[in-house]
């Protein structure tokens, strides 16, 4: 058994371990901590989606809300207006988002948008969708859409009022699948091509990489995953409006996790989410009921965002490759340091 396990590549072993941990976690948590855990895993999933396009292929998206919102609205409208199960709805949403990714990817890359300019273009596309949705009847304009609660658990409607653990298991499964896709990508031609494009597009093209095609692939994969994240959250929250779906808070939140955790690494988005999401939840609850000597911050919004800002500045200055990026380096340094200590002890003893 152990022998078998050892033959599995390292990242897949980590993924199996993560699956086991995620299966156990909800059993140990109370109601509040469970909602923190759901948020954490959900943001890790969104970060994983961003990481494929922004991290591996190096196409920085500042408008991931566009894809997220397409997923959120598609499954919601299909459910509320047509009675179609969100499980099916989220796949349709993923397909729409991938199609939208194809269109904006083609438009941007064909006309040579790169770096900051591409990032700004993605932001503009997300804002465009937000503004359009405030006027669009089919998504009930700026009023938004309520998903009627079924009152209890329903797998077909993806609502788990009585057993919120199921929400956790659903998003945990998505995260595992997302990470699995990421690992497969990094080990195959498409992942090598993504990274080659990120490092030097001209050199990649000279080696036969169809850079336009592969950049669009990256956007489409990333978009489909983000859309599924959007569908999930709206099913959990049971309400969607233009700023929840296409707002800049989503676009920023999605890219913060991989940047803090480690851009272009498999585990970076998860590490980033583990650091930031609980922090956000605890700060929010802390601000809701602060101790008496801090009563002046009671009910003030945005403290978590300020803390995020500080963390981001620290990370960018001291560890631009992110926590998952520097952790192995520190670990190696610690180990070499220990080896040196051992050796010097031996020398002294001799």
């Amino acid at each position: 058994m152990m022998e078998r396990l050892r033959q599995i590549p390292r990242d897949f072993r980590y993924l199996i371990a993560l699956g086991v941990v995620l299966a156990i976690v909800p059993l140990l948590l109370n109601q509040f901590l469970l909602s923190v855990a759901i948020q954490t895993v959900y943001w890790a999933f969104l970060g994983t989606s961003w990481n494929i396009m922004g991290g591996y292929a190096g196409q920085f998206s500042f408008g991931h809300a566009a894809f997220y919102g397409i997923g959120a609205y598609t499954s919601t409208v299909l459910l509320v207006d047509y009675g179609i199960s969100p499980w099916l709805g989220m796949l349709v949403g993923a397909a729409f988002a991938a199609l939208f990714g194809l269109i904006i990817g083609y438009l941007s890359f064909q006309f040579g948008l790169k770096g900051h300019f591409f990032a700004l273009a993605t932001f503009a596309f997300a804002e465009m969708l937000r503004l359009v949705s405030t006027e669009l009847e089919i998504v009930n304009t700026s009023v938004g859409i309520h998903i009627p609660p079924v009152g209890g658990d329903s797998w077909s409607k993806m609502q788990f009022e009585n057993t919120p653990e199921y929400y956790f298991y659903v998003i945990a499964l998505f995260l595992i699948v997302g990470l699995f896709i990421t690992i497969i990508i990094t080990r195959s031609k498409i992942g090598y091509y993504f990274q080659a494009i990120r490092e030097d597009e001209e050199a990649a093209a000279a080696l036969g990489v169809d850079t336009l095609r592969y950049k669009i692939y990256a956007v489409m994969i990333s978009a489909a995953m983000a859309a599924i994240g959007g569908s999930f959250f709206i099913q959990f929250f049971l309400f969607v409006d233009p700023s929840l779906a296409f707002g800049v808070a989503i676009s920023i939140g999605v890219l913060l996790r991989p940047i803090v955790g480690g851009v272009g690494t498999i585990w970076g988005p998860l590490v980033g989410a583990l650091l930031l999401s609980p922090l956000a939840e605890f700060t929010r609850s802390f601000v809701r009921t602060p101790p008496s000597f801090l009563s002046f911050i009671e009910g003030r919004a945005g403290v978590d965002v300020m803390i995020f800002g500080v963390i981001l500045i620290v990370i960018i200055i001291f560890a631009p490759e992110g926590v998952a990026g520097i952790a192995p380096r520190l670990w190696r340094r610690y180990q070499t340091g220990r080896d040196v200590d051992e050796k010097s002890k031996e020398t002294v003893a001799a």
Binding site: Q195, A196, E199, D200, E202, A203, A204, A206, G264
Partner: peptide, 12 residues
């Protein structure tokens, strides 16, 4: 082709 100014994929 090769490039006059080398273009390695630095982080790989």
């Amino acid at each position: 082709r090769t490039f006059q100014i080398v273009k390695p994929f630095a982080s790989l």
